[in-house]
């Protein structure tokens, strides 16, 4: 199915077009979402809503860019919104635990860490990394994640973010500097303990 055929099929709510859309873009959508959310399970759940959004808003796709670029934009937006929701929920959980002094409460909410061969919990490190990424300004975060995790070229990122190449270069450089500040001590300290 060519891209115009696919778009036409989605507009006509054709089940075969839905199948083609999901098969063609599921990996892109889920992996990108997981890089923003920091875990695959949440990304898989969110991908359902992303595809529903794609289908509903396909008539607003102007075909100035490729379908893939447009899908990237929807994925990034939905993922960032989900991160915001999770952060709000996280604040609520922290507030709850502030008011609850039960030690049992804490042990129940801490996930069992998986220990990697070097003795440090991989999951914990990943959480540390994504917490740092999520503290970056939004534009820096988008550019950094698409570049570093998603292997997108500066040109592709510029298209997805609807901006110029120099802006993308600058965003990525600033993101790296910020992350370096946030992470290098955490990770090197982490290693010592």
């Amino acid at each position: 199915m060519t891209e115009p055929e696919l778009i036409k099929g989605i507009l006509q709510r054709d089940h075969r077009a839905f199948e083609c859309l999901v098969n063609r873009y599921q990996k892109q959508v889920i992996k990108t979402a997981s890089y923003f959310l920091g875990n695959m399970e949440d990304a898989e759940d969110l991908s359902q809503e992303i595809f529903i959004d794609i289908i509903y808003s396909i008539n607003s796709f102007k075909q100035n860019s490729s379908l893939s670029t447009w899908i990237y934009r929807i994925t990034v937006n939905k993922s960032l919104n989900m991160v915001k929701k999770q952060q709000r929920r996280g604040i609520m959980v922290r507030l709850e635990s502030l008011f609850s002094h039960s030690a049992e409460h804490h042990t129940r909410h801490d996930p069992e860490p998986s220990i990697s061969p070097d003795g440090v919990a991989e999951q914990e490190k990943r959480q540390l990394l994504h917490a740092a990424i999520n503290r970056l300004p939004e534009n820096q975060r988008i550019a950094f994640v698409l570049h570093k995790f998603d292997d997108q070229s500066y040109k592709q990122i510029a298209e997805i973010m609807k901006t110029g190449l120099p802006a993308v270069e600058s965003l990525i450089h600033r993101a790296k500097l910020n992350l370096q500040q946030k992470l290098m001590y955490q990770f090197s300290e982490y290693k010592k303990t």
């Binding site: 089940h15 839905f18 199948e19 999901v22 098969n23 599921q26 990996k27 889920i30 992996k31 997981s34 890089y35 695959m40 990304a43 898989e44 991908s47 359902q48 595809f51 529903i52 289908i55 991989e122 490190k125 990943r126 990394l129 570093k148 995790f149 292997d151």
Partner: peptide
């Protein structure tokens, strides 16, 4: 290295079916 390991992770095998069920 952590980022490279994360990039190597793939979605579960039945995720497409679940998405299509949700769409249906």
């Amino acid at each position: 290295e952590l980022i490279e390991r994360e990039k190597a992770l793939d979605p579960g095998p039945f995720v497409a079916t679940r998405i299509l069920q949700r769409i249906d």
